[in-house]
Each structure stands twice: as structure tokens, then as C-alpha cells.
Amino acid sequence: MDVPFRVTDATLDVIEVLLAGQPDLYALKISKEIGRPSGSVVPILMRLEDCGWVTSKWEDSGSQSRGPRRRFYELDPNRVAGARSLVVSRRQPATRCTGIVRPGLAGGC
């Protein structure tokens, strides 16, 4: 699958959280879910939004939450199948045996 953004482990982590479909996902909540700093999550969300994979909206100004307004992110409904396919293809463990002997791995596989 050819995607218009760099696919890193952190990108896959963000996409997996978005695929779970939880309501009201904002950058800090996503970063806590995946155990990565918000400073790496926000640029990923911006990249995904720039290429149309993610949509976002600001929290209503009249909401009861304390602190600054949050920006909620969700996966574009037209990208869900592609996102699932991307995660499956990139998260699959390697099944090919390279023949390289590594310490602790019998037979190099």
C-alpha cells in the first residue's frame, strides 16, 4: 500500500488508537494511550490531517472542561479500510528466515 506520509512505529500506534474509535480523542489522550510524548504525537496527527486521513474539530467553547480547548481527532471514514490494511501489513511479524544466527535464537530464525 502506497501512503502519502512516512510510516513509523509511532504513526502506526496513533492510527491504531484512531481505529479503536473512542470518542473525543485529543493529542494528550492519544499520547497517554500509546505511551509516547505529545511532542511526537501532534506532528503525526497534523501530517495525517494534511493528507486527508484524519479530521479534527475544536472542542465547543462552552464545554465544562477546565484548561484550554482541546482539538478532537478521528480517522476519516473513507480511510478506515486503508488504515486497517496499513497496520496489518506493517505490524505483521517477519515470517521469512534470513539464516542469520542471532544469540538466543536457535537455527537463526
Rank of each mutant, 00 (worst) to 15 (best):
P77D: 11
M1A: 15
R96T: 01
Q22A: 14
G104M: 04
S56E: 06
C109I: 01
L12C: 02
R79T: 05
V41C: 01
R6F: 14
I15N: 03
G82T: 05
W53D: 09
T95I: 05
L25M: 04
L75W: 08
I34P: 06
G82P: 02
S56P: 07
A81K: 13
Q92T: 12
V41P: 00
S56D: 04
V80P: 03
P43S: 13
S31L: 00
P37Q: 01
G21K: 14
F5H: 13
G108S: 11
S85L: 10
A94W: 01
T8D: 04
E49S: 14
A10P: 02
Q92G: 14
P4W: 13
P4V: 14
S61Y: 14
R70G: 09
K57C: 09
E74P: 14
S85K: 11
G108T: 02
L75Y: 12
Y26C: 00
S61L: 12
R6N: 11
P68N: 15
A94F: 03
L18Q: 13
G104F: 02
A81M: 12
E49N: 14
M1H: 13
F72A: 02
G99K: 03
S85V: 07
N78E: 14
D2N: 15
D76S: 08
W58Y: 06
V42L: 10
I15S: 03
R36K: 09
A20T: 14
G82N: 11
V3M: 11
L48Q: 05
V3E: 12
I15A: 06
A10D: 01
R96P: 02
L45F: 05
L48T: 07
P23F: 02
C51K: 13
V80C: 04
L25W: 04
S65A: 10
R36P: 02
G82C: 04
S38F: 05
L48A: 07
L18F: 10
L25Q: 01
I30V: 01
V101E: 04
P77K: 09
V41H: 00
L86H: 08
V41F: 00
G52K: 11
L45D: 03
A106Q: 13
F72K: 04
G62S: 15
